[in-house]
């Protein structure tokens, strides 16, 4: 997209580039891990297959992004070293991604809010000055478009389905809405990445995300919750308690048997 490319060419450090990539990579990884929990437990066989596909896409994105971060870092850390040998404070995922699968409504709301953010972000990143990232974005944006189609479709069905589904999806929306503040509020690094032509322009994602999500909420007959200021951001390493448990499970083998090949 032109927004990122037309920005200036301010200096960007290696550490900043890695930090920014980890935000994207960890968000995909953690969201993919969460969806992976559901395989075999979905409401229908068909939904199991669909969530499995989305999980696979997300883990695929994470692998590409982590590998890229590792190459830029140039200290011999590959995708697995980054995925399995960092602790929660070093994870840079959006906190929304780590929120648990309380029920199908919580899963769909989490995915929907996140899918819209990923879709707009990757759309914008296809024009990134970080060329390898732009390449990954070209692939990811297609996947995210389908993820959004799937989760938005379900959000509408649940919102405009039965009384119970409406109540459940409203409750999930109320519980998860505070985490959207992090998606939409650029911090210093986001702003700097925009100036450097690597990341999207500040405000752009908020505007597009808001238009996209508002339309679907209206179609789903769901009230958009009021904006909540929520400054504890996973992208700066300040996570909810859920991430620690997610990582404990995910990382147990490489941590129990260090230095071997799997």
């Amino acid at each position: 997209m032109s927004t990122a490319a037309e920005a200036g060419s301010a200096e960007v450090s290696r550490a900043e580039r890695i930090e920014y990539l980890l935000r994207l990579a960890d968000t995909s990884l953690v969201a993919g891990q969460r969806l992976g929990e559901l395989l075999g437990h979905g409401p229908t066989l068909e939904e199991d297959l669909a969530l499995g596909n989305i999980s696979l896409d997300l883990i695929g994105q994470a692998r590409l992004l982590l590998a890229l971060a590792g190459r830029i870092e140039d200290k011999g850390r590959d995708e697995d070293a980054l995925a399995f040998r960092r602790d929660a404070p070093q994870f840079r995922n959006m906190s929304l991604a780590e929120q648990p699968n309380e029920d199908f409504a919580a899963t769909i709301v989490r995915q929907c809010l996140l899918d819209a953010w990923q879709l707009e972000t990757y759309e914008s990143l296809t024009g990134s000055r970080e060329e390898a990232l732009a390449d990954i974005a070209h692939k990811a944006v297609k996947e995210c478009r389908y993820h959004w189609r799937f989760s938005a479709g379900w959000l509408v069905r649940l919102g405009d389905g039965t009384e119970e589904s409406h109540a459940r999806v409203s409750a999930a929306l109320g519980a998860l809405w505070r985490f959207t503040d992090e998606l939409l509020t650029p911090d210093a690094l986001d702003a700097h990445m925009a100036v450097c032509g690597i990341g999207p322009a500040p405000g752009l994602i908020r505007e597009r995300w808001d238009a996209r999500v508002s339309a679907v909420l209206a179609e789903a007959k769901l009230q958009k919750p009021p904006h909540q200021h929520y400054p504890w951001h996973g992208k700066r390493g300040v996570h909810s308690e859920h991430l620690g448990h997610l990582l404990t499970e995910m990382q147990f083998l490489p941590r129990t048997y260090p230095g071997v090949t799997w």
Binding site: E46, L49, A50, G52, N53, G153, R157
Partner: peptide, 13 residues
């Protein structure tokens, strides 16, 4: 449950 979902399920399966 509906046609849109049927397309998605067909794609995924």
């Amino acid at each position: 449950a509906d046609a849109r979902m049927a397309i998605e399920h067909a794609r995924d399966a």
